[in-house]
Design a protein around this nucleic acid. Structure first.
Lengths: 285, 285
DNA sequence: CGGTCGATTGAGGTAACTCAAGTGCGGTGG
DNA sequence: CCACCGCACTTGAGTTACCTCAATCGACCG
C-alpha cells in the first residue's frame, strides 16, 4: 500500500467518521479536497515530503523513497473552521498558504485567540494527547492546508527515523512558540505589545518572501486585542498613536512599517501622541 | 546492550559533555545521581517504564521486555537549577517528587514564570526542536527527577510503537497545558485568577494523594504573581481578602482551603473585604 | 439607500501598579 | 540566650494605564 493510497483512504475515513464527532462542525462539511478543484490554477492536490520539509524549514529527509511520499491538500475558505474544540483528532494540518487563528474558550465562554498560524505553521498538535482537538482553528483568509494524517505519519515515522525526528521537532517547536509568546509580551505595556506584535508579523512576512514593510492585517482589532490581552479600543488607539509618531502608516487593515527598529525597541509612547487629554489633566493638577 | 547500560552510559556522556555547554551552570555540577546516595531511605536510583507510565497517568505499556526497562533518577536540591536557557538538550526529566518552576526571560531581562511542574510533569520538551532548552527549570523544593535521555527514548520508541505513542502524548500534553493556562486566566481579574490558581493547585495535590485542603505554597508571592501576570502586592492583598471572606485560611505560605467551590466560581471580591478605604471613598463621592 | 459591522475617538471610572512604611520570622553571631 | 539583620510578606496611599460605555464615522453589501 503506497502513501497516496493511504492518504486518500484516510480522507474517506474522515468523511465517514463525521457523524460521530462530538461538537458541531458547521463548516467542516464544506471543506474541499484540492483535487475537486478545477485544475490549471497552479495548485496541486498534494505535496511531497520533500516539499513539506522545505515548508517547515528543516533539513529535507534524504531517503529517496520517503521524501517522495505525498500528502493531500485541503482548501479552506475565509471564515471556515478547520477543526472544532472537542472534535475527534485525526489530522495535523500544515499551512501551505493563507492566514488563520486558533482560539480556545475562556472561563466566561469568550473566545481567546491563541495564535495566528500562517505558512509553515502546524495545526492540531494539541489533539494528540486525548485524541480530541483542544482548540479551534478558523481561516482568516482562503487557506491551502496540507493534511498530515497523524496515524499514518507516525506509522511512516517508525520506518524512517529521520521522519520521526522531524515529527518530534515539529511538535516541540509549537510548544516553544507558545512559551516565547508568554515571555515576550508579559511585562510589556499596551504600546510595546502592539509594536512588537507588528514587528514580529513584519519579520514573519519577510521570511515568507512577502513584503515586510507593507501588508494587510488579516485579523480584526478585537482578535488582535484578544491575542495580546488588550481591548479592541486600546489596539485602535495604540495603532493611531504609532501612526502619529511616524513609526507606521495605518489605515483600517493596511499597514506600512516606516521604522522597524523603532517598533522593536519602543517602550512607551510619549503622552502627547496618545491623547491631548491626559497631558492636559496632568497640567491642571 | 540493555537499557540499564544505555542509561548509565548516557549519564557518563552527560558528565563528559558538560564542558561544551553554552550557558553557565552554577548548580548543575552539584546534581547527584541517586545511586550516590545512602540507601535505605526508600529511594531507588531508577524506575521502570511501567512505573513511569503510572506516573504519567497513561495506560502502562504491555510489552514485558519494554516495561521493565529502567531509567535513572537524579536528586536536585531546593534552589538548584535543573537546566538553563540555551543549554544543550539531552534529557527529558520526569518529576517523581518535589516542586519546581520553569522560567523564561522577558524582554527586560526579568524572569517570567511559565509553569510550576510537580509530580508527573515533564521537563525539557522545549529543547527537542533546536537542541537547546528554551527555558530554565529550578527546583523550589528538594526534587527527585527521572532522567529520560531523549535520544535513547526515541531509539526505544522506534522499536516499540506503544512507547512512541506515549512520547507523542507526553509532548502534546505539555502543549495543551500551556494553552489551557492562557485560556483559563485571560479575561479574569486578579481575584479570580488567584482563586482559580489555588483551586487548581489544590485539585492537583489531591490527585497526587496529598491533602487538597491544606498545603504549603512552595513559591514566593513574586513567583506566583509572575505566573499570573500580577504584582506580588496584588497577590498578597488578594490572599488576605480571600482569607477575610472566609474562603481560605492563609498564613505566610501555608494555605487551608475552606470553600473549594467558592474558589472555583469566584468572579470578584466585594469591596468591603478588599479594603475599607475604597468603599469609603465611594460613599464620600 | 439604509443596515450592519468594524474602526475610531472621546470621557470617565477603576483595577491594578508603584512607592513606601511597617511587621514577623528565621538565621547568624556575639 | 538574646540582639541583630535580612528577607518575604503585609498594608497603606496615591497614581495611572487600561477598561468601559457611548457617539460617530466609513466601508461594504444586499
Amino acid at each position: 500500500m503506497n502513501v497516496l493510497e493511504l492518504t486518500l483512504n484516510n480522507c474517506r475515513e474522515t468523511e465517514a467518521s463525521c457523524t460521530d464527532r462530538v461538537s458541531a462542525m458547521p463548516l467542516q462539511s464544506g471543506l474541499k479536497l484540492l483535487n475537486d478543484f478545477p485544475s490549471g490554477q497552479g495548485l496541486r492536490p498534494w505535496s511531497s515530503l520533500r516539499e513539506i520539509c522545505t515548508l517547515l524549514n528543516v533539513q529535507p529527509v534524504k531517503d529517496p523513497q520517503l521524501c517522495n511520499q505525498v500528502f493531500q491538500h485541503v482548501l479552506v475558505k475565509s471564515g471556515e473552521q478547520v477543526h472544532a474544540i472537542g472534535q475527534r483528532f485525526e489530522m495535523l494540518y500544515l499551512v501551505n498558504s493563507g492566514f488563520l487563528k486558533t482560539i480556545s474558550l475562556s472561563d466566561g465562554g469568550q473566545e481567546v485567540v491563541l495564535k495566528f498560524p500562517m505558512k509553515g505553521d502546524l495545526l492540531g498538535v494539541d489533539g494528540i494527547d486525548g485524541q480530541r482537538y483542544a482548540c479551534e482553528a478558523v481561516a482568516l483568509s482562503d487557506c491551502d492546508l496540507i493534511m498530515l494524517p497523524f496515524h499514518k505519519l507516525a506509522l511512516l515515522g517508525r520506518e524512517y527515523s529521520e521522519l520521526e525526528n522531524l515529527i518530534y521537532c515539529m511538535i516541540s517547536r509549537e510548544l516553544v512558540r507558545g512559551q516565547m509568546q508568554i515571555g515576550m509580551y508579559s511585562g510589556l505595556n499596551a504600546e510595546a505589545r502592539v509594536a512588537r506584535f507588528l514587528a514580529a508579523l513584519a519579520e514573519r512576512f519577510g521570511q515568507l518572501g512577502y513584503s515586510s514593510k507593507s501588508f494587510n492585517l488579516r485579523m480584526s482589532r478585537r482578535e488582535m486585542g484578544s491575542y495580546l490581552g488588550l481591548t479592541l479600543e486600546t489596539i485602535s488607539r495604540t495603532l493611531s498613536a504609532l501612526h502619529a509618531m511616524g513609526i507606521i502608516n495605518v489605515s483600517r487593515r493596511s499597514v506600512d512599517i516606516i521604522d522597524v527598529a523603532g517598533l522593536r525597541t519602543l517602550r512607551r509612547i510619549p503622552p502627547s501622541y496618545l491623547n491631548a487629554r491626559d497631558e492636559l489633566r496632568k497640567r491642571l493638577h
